[in-house]
Nucleic acid binder design. Structure first.
Lengths: 205, 205
DNA sequence: TCAGAATTCTATTAATCTATAGAAATATTT
DNA sequence: AAATATTTCTATAGATTAATAGAATTCTGA
């Protein structure tokens, strides 16, 4: 079956290729719409051989989702640990988030669209990553308060979730319109988050 | 097969029940994870009998999605046609949107999660409804400009998509935490959209 | 080059599921 | 109550698919 301790270089390489093939096929046809034969074909092997790398189709989905999220979360960590001011970091976060919709990141798309088909026990690690992402963003909001760039009464959990949602919404524009300028969108988005819609001067409540 | 002209009262009633049963089952198991037998069982009839109401499983999915979106869009129309000022309408939009996550609207959930499994020709009517929703929201933003409640440089397409995304993001909080106060969230969300994160007084660029 | 290990292939099992056709049952109308 | 129309059931065809086992092949190191 599977190599026990060895995990040879070749095995690891091919396993990564298998994850990518699965990401590609799942993102095209959906998890249930895609067969293990489709995935194997994309990889250039036969259906049965795929089980050398995955114990089940579900395990393949889990690995694809994890693979898609990881890099994305790593970027967030780098931003959160950086030394820039709130405005710059917010922009970096938004740009990182929106950028993912342009470079077609199939594994991340699979995570977004198909992860619900995983049974709960296969979703725990994904949830951990997602929570980690949001918590880093909450940290950034808190530093914004320390800098007096963010009003005190703003709840950082609420704020982080709002930012994530807004970016996902704008992602649709990027997907719909291949001409859309990601950096310009990121700029507008950051501006909206910082200043809102209302004219700058006075505003009542 | 299907009744041609009659469309008897009973038929219509049972068809609606079938759509609801499909919504319930699809939202639980996903479109591909659910079988027509599951849907029929929820409705209290046998698998084969379901085809009296739908030509195919895909048609059932399409009808569920349309059913889920329609009411939601109708509410938006009512808000857009109303006479209130920008701030009040924005709040109404956000409240309508967030409210949907609390009353468990299974059909709308199916629309959100499963619509991608429809072939493009079955998605056109859904897209029309979605576009209509966003366009009404763009209208509201434009009236906001006329009222000087919204800065001129704000792009209404961008803005509408941002609002939709933010609401969807906050929806996750509502789903995660059954205690979350929808109206309080709607208030915070409206406030953030109007004023941004930054303290009110001056802000540079 | 040979031996053993790692990788892929073939063949098959067993289960599942959509969709259809025609019979049976139920409701409606005359 | 008989006749007709509507709704549901039974049974099945036909196709697909995930997963397994063991054989065949390819790779690697001595």
């Amino acid at each position: 079956m599977k190599p026990e301790k060895t995990e040879s270089r070749r095995y690891q390489k091919q396993k990564l290729a298998a994850i990518r093939a699965a990401a590609s096929v799942f993102s095209e046809k959906g998890f249930h719409g895609a067969s293990t034969a489709d995935v194997a074909a994309r990889l250039g092997i036969k259906q049965g051989s795929l089980y050398y790398y995955f114990d089940s189709k579900e395990e393949a989905l889990e690995e694809v989702c994890l693979y898609g999220l990881r890099q994305y979360v790593e970027n967030m960590d780098a931003i959160a640990e950086g030394e820039e001011n709130f405005q710059a970091r917010l922009r970096a976060v938004v740009t990182n988030h929106l950028g993912r919709y342009r470079e077609k990141n199939e594994a991340l798309k699979v995570h977004n669209d198909e992860r619900l088909y995983l049974p709960p026990e296969r979703r725990v690690r994904l949830k951990q990553l997602g929570t980690h992402y949001r918590e880093r963003l909450e940290d950034i909001v808190e530093t914004g308060k320390a800098e007096a760039a963010v009003r005190d009464e703003i709840d950082s959990h609420f704020m982080a979730q709002s930012i994530i949602g807004m970016c996902n919404g704008l992602g649709e524009i990027i997907v719909r319109d291949p001409e859309a300028d990601v950096f310009e969108l990121a700029r507008k988005c950051t501006d909206l988050l910082l200043h809102g819609t209302a004219p700058y001067h006075i505003q009542g409540d």
